[in-house]
């Protein structure tokens, strides 16, 4: 039992640190990085807690997160790149 507790405490502390990074920034990419890290740590936490509860069939949740967090991060990056690109083009248009 106790090893699950150790791992989950480590993961919880890391989640806190990631949250601190997400709040601090400074750049947007740091925040995206923190959100991604937070997501993967949640996957690990859910997996560990499922074992801690003695119901490993609940790993479905961690699986869902592992898949969906990725989509979220890609969507954020896609959005940010196109936004950047818009800015760039507007700057060009202004120069012209």
């Amino acid at each position: 039992m106790s090893m699950y507790v150790i791992v989950s405490i480590a993961i919880l502390v890391t989640m806190t640190l990631a949250l601190a990074r997400a709040l601090k920034g400074p750049s947007v990419y740091d925040r995206v990085l923190a959100v991604n890290m937070f997501g993967t740590k949640t996957v690990l936490l859910l997996a560990v807690v499922a074992f801690f509860y003695g119901r490993p069939d609940f790993l479905d949740l961690a699986l869902a997160y592992a898949l969906i967090n990725f989509v979220g991060i890609l969507a954020v990056l896609e959005f940010f790149q196109s936004q950047r690109n818009d800015d760039e083009e507007q700057a060009k248009e202004q120069e012209e």
Binding site: R31, V35, L46, V49, F79
Partner: peptide
């Protein structure tokens, strides 16, 4: 920055899900 707020919303939702799981609501 609203973009930052939306990303923090993702973290918020992750935390909510972890809480739900701990409160037995798989």
């Amino acid at each position: 920055n609203l973009f930052v707020a939306v990303m923090l919303m993702a973290i918020f939702s992750l935390l909510m899900a972890a809480n739900f799981f701990i409160l037995d609501a798989a």
